[in-house]
Write a protein that binds this DNA or RNA. Structure first.
Length: 824
RNA sequence: GCCGAAGUGGCGGAAUUGGUAGACGCACAGGACUUAAAAUCCUGCGAUCCGUGAGGUUCGUACCGGUUCGAUCCCGGUCUUCGGCACCA
């Protein structure tokens, strides 16, 4: 034991103690209330960054607090270990991705232990290991068996630099999320998961998640993008075919003046045939082909199109409308065709203006200043229906329902709901991912590998060129397989899965990570799920969190999992900034955690990160602030060292007698209440720490008193150590021992506060005149409204201020203030 | 463009239900200790004006207005910053 705070010695000592006693191991204890706490597992890049330190420090406070509150806390950690960087390392340095990843996992595990985070490492998982990806494959097979996995040839997003397919989600502003290359299109046979079958439930399930930030739920809601409207069939003139469209505005059906198809629409060739428009259409299509996705998707791109030469008949009004092809209609939403109502849709309006098409208003604005005959822009608000046959005169909102009813009755169309959400493209032309366990037989088609043959192992005899097709095709033996149905020789799928599949169920594997017979036992999953608190970066608000919800709902449906929402409460932590900007290598403002750990230790790093900002906000890194946190821990340590010896034989109880005792007693109980409340209900760690600092300040004052109560000093010191221990566990273990306790603080009980100590004899009351603070008086705590006013009026200064003024009335709030309202 | 969040001292932030704005910390300044420095301890620290002083005045939570005895908090409008979506019919 030393008088000086030697963080390096202390931290090493206690980390070894925790490990040697296997303190963080968790089992399924039937008698205890469970608490499943999870931080998003990292990609093993090799080194922790400050964002990780923040994420895991936040989690560890909750872990240690809940543990002290008596919960059986599951707090596991693992590795999202498949992904591109490992493969790039293989290409550049010739290191096998497995070796590179394994080294990184080991290095990062050492760093996590160095931070003192209380994880049950016995449950560690790595998604790149066969004992894990075997079950990722198994889940994929279940998807296939339930008709939710299918293969489709489609123009896909293709990154020419990474030479791989990207999901829509991985294309940001038309650029590859990873390398920022302009994304192109390529026709490929790809595996998809039918997440759209779950669109409705993914949306409605959000309402059952009050513990999620509104912001995240809103982002998911927008991403799913539910639109209610109608499908309507328009007969094509001179053909027995009908053109099906989707609209959210059936109330504007009488205003249709033309139709527009997506360029990829299957009817295009047939429609154009024999109309003389062939050359014009060809020319238009040719031009579109050379537009990059980024231009094609741009809203500033001028709307362009070409007439097909054919017309439809409006099934409601009987009028003729020309069919166009245009660049602003998307093939993969709705039916790839729209009815155009230029008077009431801005895009249709722009197009009509450019090509001189009719604009027929069918909704009348309430505002008389809008002249429907000279529209400058589309009128998109509500109004009364006009020019709409027997529906004229209705408010348009009502018209939507009435027209939908009518077309259903007439067999022209029906109510329909469309989602912005698309099916999930999961094929990747990459090596370092879970092999898709599918086999193609020329007789039987695509079938999954037999479950008893899983996992389909990644081959090791592959070449990493970084070019062309999946590296799995370079293996000599991988592709050769037997058809699981007929036994003939067949070919394996050589693409691997999007790594988001791996991370969509890891929280379930943690419930039972060593299970060799199944992905996880139902019983264990039932015991632990759902995750009570999930913590991670807001960058995963949409993709990861939605995919994990999708997997959980599916596993619930097939009876594997007892809950259909995986995460009850979600905390999205803010970024760590330096000089107002995200820490990044290219800016050169990165503060590496190991440098801070070496100089100040883990406790200081954790304390600073938790104190500097509330967890959901951005955190501005400050070297001076770290220094301050370090000073505080030194101050606490000196206090403990001084008091521990002094109070070694102090009584276990105390009576607060003098005013100073009462203040000390109040401060201690206030701190216990505040810290408990801040951790458990608000995750407000910064204010919890400030309350602890106030307690320390008070203790420094109190200990100087000659008449101090030794029993109170002892109680205050114990409370201080316990309150601080979730934030800075190592120094607290050391001080706990110094204070004469034999067990470790991790297993100690969280302190309780005494409500009666929080009631003071006198309270400061603010006296206001017309809402402005004029005086403060000390009044007995129990005073009611009248008593307060009386006390205020008897104060000489208040008397003087009110002299000669007419008090109209007063407002008194017990325990807070009195406000006198006087005439000006 | 649409949707959402935020704006408080020199800085990070606090004020939990409409009731003392600026807790706690950083930085800074002055002082104590020291031969000196570091460390530590003490004091001050939104602006303004009045006063030698004790103390007091007025303004102040992005801006303009409203509700209220009382507004950082509620309502309407404006500006700025950040985030999400972006031709989704």
């Amino acid at each position: 034991m030393s008088d000086r705070y030697q963080f390096d010695v202390i931290e090493k000592k206690w980390q070894e103690y925790w490990a040697a006693n296997n303190l963080f191991k968790t089992t399924e204890e039937a008698g205890l209330e469970k608490y499943y706490l999870l931080e998003m597992f990292p990609y093993p890049s090799g080194k922790l960054h400050m964002g990780h330190v923040r994420n895991y420090s936040i989690g560890d406070v909750v872990m240690r607090y809940m543990k002290m509150r008596g919960y059986n806390v599951l707090h596991p950690m693992g590795w999202d270990a498949f992904g591109l960087p490992a493969e790039n390392a293989a290409i550049q340095n010739g290191i096998h991705p497995f070796v590179w990843t394994q080294d990184n996992m080991e290095e990062m595990k050492v760093q996590l232990k160095r931070l003192g985070i209380a994880y049950d490492w016995d449950r560690e998982v790595a998604t790149c290991k066969p004992d894990y990806y075997k079950w990722t494959q198994w889940i994929f097979v279940q998807f296939f068996k339930h008709g939710l996995a299918y293969k489709k040839k489609n123009p896909v997003n293709w990154c020419p630099s990474c030479e791989t397919v990207l999901a829509n989600e991985q294309v940001v502003d038309g650029l590859c999320e990873r390398c920022s290359t302009v994304v192109g299109k390529k026709d490929l046979d790809q595996w998809y998961l039918k997440i759209t079958d779950y669109a409705e439930r993914l949306l409605s399930g959000l309402e059952g998640l009050p513990g999620w930030p509104e912001k995240v739920k809103l982002m998911q809601k927008n991403w799913i993008g539910r639109s209610v409207g109608a499908e309507v069939d328009f007969p094509i003139e001179g053909s027995d075919k009908k053109l099906r469209i989707f609209t959210t505005r059936p109330d504007t059906l009488f205003g249709v003046t033309f139709m527009v198809l997506a360029p990829e629409h299957p009817y295009v060739a047939e429609l154009v045939e024999g109309t003389g428009q062939g050359a014009a259409v060809d020319e238009f299509m040719h031009r579109l082909q050379y537009l990059s996705d980024i231009d094609r998707a741009s809203t500033t791109l001028e709307k362009e199109g070409v007439f097909t030469g054919k017309y439809v008949i409006n099934p409601l009004s009987g009028t003729k409308a020309p069919i166009f092809i245009a660049n602003y209609v998307l093939m993969d939403y709705g039916s790839g065709a729209i009815m155009a109502v230029p008077a009431h849709d801005q895009r249709d309006f722009d197009f009509a203006k450019k090509y001189g098409l009719d604009i027929v208003p069918v909704i009348e604005p309430e505002n008389p200043e809008i002249d429907l005959d000279r529209l400058e822009e589309a009128f998109i608000s509500d109004g009364k229906m006009i020019n709409s046959g027997k529906f004229s005169g209705l408010p348009n909102r009502e018209g939507i329902a009435r027209i939908t009813e009518f077309i259903e009755k007439e067999g022209i169309g029906k109510k329909s709901i469309n989602f912005r959400l698309r099916d999930w493209l999961i094929s990747r032309q990459r090596y370092w991912g879970t092999p898709i366990p599918m086999i193609y037989c020329s007789e039987c088609g695509w079938n999954p590998e037999k479950e008893e043959n899983l996992p389909v192992l990644l081959p090791t005899d592959v070449k990493f060129t970084g070019k062309g097709e999946s590296p799995l095709t370079t293996s000599k033996s991988f592709e050769d397989a037997k058809c699981p149905v007929c036994g003939r020789s067949a070919k394996r799928e050589t693409d691997t899965m999007d790594t988001f599949l791996d991370s969509s169920w890891y929280f379930l594997r943690f419930c039972d990570s060593q299970n060799e017979a199944e992905a996880f036992s139902k019983d264990n999953a039932k015991y632990w799920m759902a995750v009570d608190q999930y913590i991670g970066g807001v960058e995963h608000a949409i993709l990861h969190l939605m995919y994990a919800r999708f997997f959980t709902k599916f596993l619930y449906d097939i009876g594997s999992c007892s809950v259909d929402e995986p995460f009850t409460n979600l905390l999205t932590q803010g970024m760590v900034l330096k000089d107002g900007r995200k820490m990044s290598k290219s800016i050169g403002n990165v503060v590496p955690p190991d440098v801070i750990l070496k100089k100040y230790g883990a406790d200081t790093a954790r304390l600073f990160i938790l104190f500097a900002s509330p967890p959901e906000k951005e955190l501005e890194w400050s070297d001076a602030g770290v220094e301050g946190s370090y000073r505080f821990l030194n101050r606490v340590y000196r206090l403990a060292a001084e008091l521990a010896e002094a109070v070694a034989g102090a009584p276990g109880s105390y009576a607060a007698v003098t005013g100073a005792d009462k203040e000390m007693d109040y401060m201690m109980n206030y701190a216990i209440k505040k810290v408990s409340n801040d951790i458990s209900t608000r995750f407000s760690f910064n204010t919890a720490i400030s309350a602890i600092m106030e307690l320390v300040n008070e203790m420094y004052k109190y200990k100087e008193r000659a008449d101090r109560s030794e029993g109170l000093v002892k109680k205050a010191l114990d409370s201080l150590i316990l309150l601080l221990s979730p934030f800075t566990p190592h120094i607290c273990e050391e001080m706990w021992q110094m204070a004469g306790h034999s067990g470790c603080v991790y297993k100690a009980e969280w302190p309780a506060y005494d409500e009666s100590a929080l009631v003071m004899d006198v309270t400061e009351i603010v006296i206001q005149i017309n809402g402005k603070v004029k005086e403060r008086i000390m009044a007995s705590s129990g005073l009611d409204r009248d008593g307060l006013a009386e006390a205020a009026l008897s104060d000489p200064k208040v008397k003087a201020l009110l002299e000669g003024k007419k008090v109209e009335r007063h407002v008194a709030v017990p325990g807070k203030l009195v406000n006198f309202v006087i005439r000006a």
